[in-house]
């Protein structure tokens, strides 16, 4: 069920502003693809186009093709809601529904799909929380509000919520940037586990994190402020960090700019 994503000649615009230029890449199933690059290079923008979340910003539009197992998710007949149902997302800031209990947060997506069977919901809830490495910590307070957990726990709750609907792809937009080092480690371990089942795309500011968790890494850059961002290169993580093809990548990784 883990699916492959191909981006072909993708250009992204916000109104008249050309945000990202001519991206071509392939996200491989059951692996972790990391996007790195300086601020404003468009890596988060590209990530948000993968489940059409960028449409939330007025005037945003995409040219080119984004194929999910060969089907263009921007086809006229395809509904953004259906796309998001298939491609889960974890955000920079943990965003559990504050009024819902831990349990209701996890099964929120399933309930949307009309699953009412309490036994099934409980099963999925436990499985997802175990999958997110959170079960042991919250099993005694499933009925407490999700907003009462610590930041790291909230983020794992959001991951549990995302995997509870069995998505084909999991997008993570800097999922650790608001967390402490220990929580970050917990999430990174979790990512390593999750890739056995899911296709994962992660945006990160932290190069060490990209090196630790990903199988392939794409480096985004922009020539100057106001110019569109573009993909400099994408390759096996090991190769990017040891022997990149492009000088710009090497400069960024060795900390010579950015």
């Amino acid at each position: 069920m883990a699916k492959r994503i191909d981006l072909k000649d993708v250009d992204i615009y916000y109104g008249a502003f050309h945000a990202v230029q001519n991206v071509n890449l392939t996200v491989i199933p059951r692996s972790v693809t990391a996007f790195i690059g300086p601020s404003g290079c468009g890596k988060s923008t590209v990530l948000r186009t993968l489940n059409r979340m960028h449409e939330e910003i007025a005037g945003a539009r995409v040219e080119g093709e984004i194929l999910l197992d060969g089907e263009n998710i921007y086809d006229r007949g395809t509904d953004a809601v259906a796309v998001r149902r298939t491609i889960g997302m974890v955000f920079q800031m943990p965003n559990p529904f504050p009024t819902m209990s831990v349990r209701d947060n996890v099964v929120a997506g399933l309930k949307l799909q009309g699953v009412r069977d309490k036994k099934k919901l409980d099963e999925v809830c436990e499985a997802s929380l175990r999958g997110a490495n959170l079960w042991k910590e919250v099993k005694d307070r499933l009925d407490k509000p999700g907003g009462g957990l610590s930041g790291g726990q909230q983020q794992r709750l959001c991951i549990a919520r995302a995997i509870a609907v069995q998505p084909d792809v999991l997008l993570m937009d800097e999922p650790c940037s608001a967390l402490d080092p220990i929580s970050t480690l917990a999430i990174e371990d979790l990512i390593a586990d999750l890739k056995k089942e899911y296709t994962i795309v992660i945006v990160t500011h932290n190069m060490q994190q990209a090196a630790r968790v990903s199988d392939q890494t794409g480096f985004f850059n922009l020539e100057a402020t106001g110019k569109p961002g573009h993909l400099v290169e994408i390759d096996d993580t090991e190769k990017i960090f040891s022997n990149p093809t492009q000088q710009a990548t090497e400069d960024y990784i060795s900390g010579r700019f950015g």
Binding site: K120, A127, G131, I163, A164, Q166, D193, L194, E197, Y198
Partner: peptide
Amino acid sequence: STVTGADL
């Protein structure tokens, strides 16, 4: 082990 909703 990753026993997730995916197994259902």
